[in-house]
Nucleic acid binder design. Structure first.
Lengths: 120, 120
DNA sequence: TTAACTGTATTAAGCCACTTAATACAGTTA
DNA sequence: TAACTGTATTAAGTGGCTTAATACAGTTAA
């Protein structure tokens, strides 16, 4: 379902977390669908179960999945999870702007990039 | 001159590097001016000299300062350094856009943030 | 009911980046 | 000459990430 990159400096649990978050946000994993079990992901990626557990724990804290002992983990209803994530991304966006301006980035350059993104 | 935050998860050398880069970009440290010596910063922040040396080494690699053994480190001419940094920031900006869109961020929200930033 | 699954928790160990520490060397400057 | 500068090296400590080996409780299908 997802893949990890050992040359990536980021911890494996972050790569797993971000990978599944992306699958959920893009709708590849629809609401209510069952996530692969911790042990399944662990086996398919040849990674310790504890590492996957940590990724799932964080996804649950973010509101993207719901874990039920004995049953499994399931993709949660979105909405609140998205708004939490949106604020996080907007915060990074706002941080980026003054820095871009300081190094001489043109305003139109940025607006054009946005136009391109939304005109697809 | 700058401060570091131990609760921040980022390494100290990154905080020092980013802090001085900011001082240079904003013009607080003008072109050609002398940077505080590695030992001075080390003493004022109560941090090992090697840690500061690493921050300076990276700032020099980025083109923001020039270090001369025996004389000191000096703020370099900007231009090339800024363009390297600008591409770095633009890359992050481009990465952020599809993610923001996916979680339902409105295009005008982003454009307005840019307008505000540049209308100051 | 039993067997095989599920999430969850714990303890111990290893690895590696970051950091500290203690020196050392060469060039510069007052 | 003495005190500064950047730079380099080696050794050790710390903490986060990861692995490993279990264990427990709840769920589910045979």
């Amino acid at each position: 379902m997802i893949s990890i990159n050992y040359r990536d400096g980021r911890p494996i649990y972050e790569q797993v977390r971000d990978g599944y978050r992306q699958l959920i946000i893009t709708g590849v994993l629809p609401m209510g669908s069952k996530m692969p079990s911790v042990r399944e992901v662990s086996a398919s990626l040849t990674v310790n179960p504890n590492t996957i557990q940590r990724a799932y724990r964080e996804l649950e804290a973010e509101g993207y999945i719901v874990s039920v002992p004995g049953k499994g983990s399931f993709v949660a209803e979105r909405g609140e999870a998205d708004s939490i994530r949106r604020e996080e991304l907007l915060s990074r966006f706002r941080t980026l702007l003054p820095e871009l301006r300081q190094v001489g980035t043109n305003k139109d350059t940025l607006v054009n990039l946005i136009e391109e993104e939304y005109n697809v």
